[in-house]
């Protein structure tokens, strides 16, 4: 069980590193715009979710706590996406 937990934590870390490198690559290359913003913030959401579930151990908490924290994460990624995207869509 503990071994499984450690393996899950390490797998989450690997995915976090991978997504960070992809986001960094996008930012470093100067890739901007709607698609870049969407992918970068989706990656941030995915990273935050793995951290909550596997590092903060919300996976073992009740569904209510998971929903509450995921709502916070959704809010802090969707609102910056919306405020960055609206000017792009409006030209």
């Amino acid at each position: 069980m503990r071994q499984t937990n450690a393996r899950r934590i390490t797998r989450a870390w690997g995915l976090l590193v991978l997504l960070t490198l992809l986001s960094l690559g996008a930012g470093h290359s100067g890739w901007t715009g709607l698609t870049a913003n969407t992918l970068i913030l989706a990656a941030a959401f995915a990273k935050g979710r793995w951290m909550m579930m596997d590092f903060l151990k919300l996976r073992d908490a009740s569904a209510g706590w998971q929903v509450l924290f995921l709502c916070w994460l959704a809010l802090v990624t969707i609102i910056p996406w919306a405020t960055a995207t609206l000017p792009l869509l409006l030209g």
Binding site: S23, N37, I40, G48, M51, M52, L56
Partner: peptide, 26 residues
Amino acid sequence: LKTGTAFWHMVDLVWVVMYPLIYLIG
């Protein structure tokens, strides 16, 4: 340990959102 690391993971979580918000999205 669970208490102390929970705070550390919160600090980590906040940065994971702050980084793209400030440095990356255009």
